[in-house]
Amino acid sequence: MVTDLKETLQSNKKKILSLWVDRTLNSYIASGFFKSSGDRFANPVGVNIREGLTRLFDLMLAGADPKEMLAPLDQVIRIRAVQEFSPSQAVAPILELKWVIRQVLGSGRNKRPPAEELDNFDCDVDRLALLAFDLYTECRELLYKNRVHEIKSGRYILTDSACASALAGNKKTGCAGVETS
């Protein structure tokens, strides 16, 4: 039954989380520092990702509503959405939980849980991954909105309208207003 699987997951929580966090942080070249420093202000990437994944795992075990998962998911995805990852790499850690769980449950004295129980849990993971994808897209849209907002709120308008040299189109003046296209 599903409950049994959850109990098994609960008792292996430490191992699962440790592997899950490790794999996620391994996607950074400097993973060592991100993994080792526990100061949330000195190491925002490492600590937020660790905390986010931990909370997500707890919420999944508790069968929480997807809405409750948004905050911890945000903790992970908002960071990865502005780092040098492709969209798939940015959300990949969520899907990797499936692999991590099989890895941990398949080792040591653990008995591999029946396939259909795992299937159910996998569905939860898939749902979470889809949620992550929504969030990722939201973050990216926000970035572009902010870009537009910055361009609109100042410089561009002024260099194009208020600069006499720009209007005159004088190349030697150094005012590039006319060249913004």
């Binding site: 490790d22 993973s31 060592g32 520092f33 993994k35 080792s36």
Partner: peptide, 8 residues
Amino acid sequence: VEGPSLMT
């Protein structure tokens, strides 16, 4: 990069 324990 690897941290003090060279863990991974």
